[in-house]
């Protein structure tokens, strides 16, 4: 008696009853976060683009003195800090979804996510430190680069 071959195409084993398919409510929290942070980011980024690119002199007016003038007020520091964190989490979570959708090999997915996590940590830590340690009037700066409120050298 002969047996015929399994007619199914080769495919990854389906998750069995013993394997966790979802991780609690993490994906639900991620879904909700994208929507809440998205709405907040529309306000933060539209405000950022209006002040930096539309009002005043636009992109040509952006220089060290312009940034120093903004970060002299606590309001813009909080604005930019919130924008940095929300945009980075929103963007990194979006990329995580894209990686999960298109990287089919387990090893590829893992390494892309390691790379994503490393970039996320590096950029968020760097950006946060810059906002909190910023000095609008650094000593030894070239003449004419500082905002007008700095004491004359």
């Amino acid at each position: 008696m002969t047996t015929i071959a399994d007619p199914k195409a080769p495919r990854a084993p389906r998750p069995g009853p013993g394997r966790r398919v979802t991780r609690g409510n993490v994906e639900m929290a991620s879904w909700l976060f994208m929507r809440i942070s998205g709405v907040v980011l529309v306000v933060l980024i539209f405000g950022h683009l209006f002040v930096n690119l539309v009002a005043g002199g636009g992109v040509k007016a952006i220089d060290f003195a312009f940034v120093a003038g903004k970060w002299a007020s606590l309001g813009w520091q909080v604005w930019d800090l919130l924008m940095l964190w929300l945009a980075m989490i929103h963007g990194a979570n979006g990329l995580r979804t894209i990686i999960n959708d298109y990287a089919e090999k387990n090893a590829t997915r893992l390494w892309l996510k390691v790379l994503l996590a490393a970039s996320f940590v590096a950029v968020v830590v760097l950006g946060t430190l810059v906002i909190f340690t910023f000095d609008p009037c650094p000593a030894g700066a070239a003449a004419g680069t500082l905002p007008s409120f700095c004491p004359a050298p």
Binding site: D63, A65, V123, L129, P138, A141, A142
Partner: peptide, 20 residues
């Protein structure tokens, strides 16, 4: 773009001339 933009803005901590 966001990754690059945080890096270029971080140059304000190097020197005003570098950022400019």
């Amino acid at each position: 773009f966001l990754l690059v933009h945080v890096l270029d803005t971080s140059l304000v901590r190097v020197a005003p001339e570098t950022y400019n």
